[in-house]
């Protein structure tokens, strides 16, 4: 099974590498290029811990092959805030509203929330809950995650 050359942009940096066709995008991120901020929580595409943006839209990076990302741009939680020490409003809101505990679901949850807010800058509680249905969290009971997304919407100017 020959390796295939791919060129993937991750958090603004272009990576030209050769991968086995079966390499999962999430393993490429974590193990080949050291972007370990994105994590794995399951093997059935249910948990969403691995969520990243692919060409600006949320995907589960365990359910995409690295070769399928060839020629595309991936944004992970590590590249979300621009520049050093900066905070994306969603990150800021999660901190402010205590929207994380152990933080394991957080990279995926944050990216799913970013996607949700770009689709719908002013979501209702129900829309937030449904929009995050693909991301499991065992720590928070989601209460403060919902609050975080509401607050992020406010910070981003969506909520009046």
């Amino acid at each position: 099974m020959t390796h295939i050359p791919i060129s993937v942009t991750v958090d603004g940096t272009v990576y030209d590498v050769e991968v086995e066709p079966r390499r999962l995008l999430v393993h490429f991120l974590r193990e080949d290029i050291g972007r370990v901020g994105t994590v794995v929580g399951c093997d059935t595409s249910n948990c969403g811990a691995c969520t990243v943006l692919l060409d600006g839209k949320s995907v589960k990076s365990c359910s995409v092959l690295a070769v399928q990302a060839d020629g595309h741009a991936v944004l992970t939680v590590q590249g979300l805030a621009e520049g050093e020490h900066k905070w994306h409003p969603v990150q800021e809101a999660f901190k402010e509203c205590h929207g994380l505990q152990c933080g394991y679901c957080t990279p995926g949850m944050v990216m799913a929330a970013v996607d949700l807010l770009q689709e719908n800058p002013n979501p209702s509680e129900e829309e937030i809950r449904e929009g995050l249905e693909g991301n499991l969290c065992r720590c928070t009971g989601y209460h403060n995650i919902v609050k975080s997304v509401e607050y992020a919407a406010e910070l981003m100017g969506g909520k009046s």
């Binding site: 949320s58 996607d115 949700l116 929009g131 991301n135």
Partner: peptide
């Protein structure tokens, strides 16, 4: 169907 991330693909 499924969730937003899965619906994207």
């Amino acid at each position: 169907v499924a969730d937003p991330a899965i619906r994207h693909r």
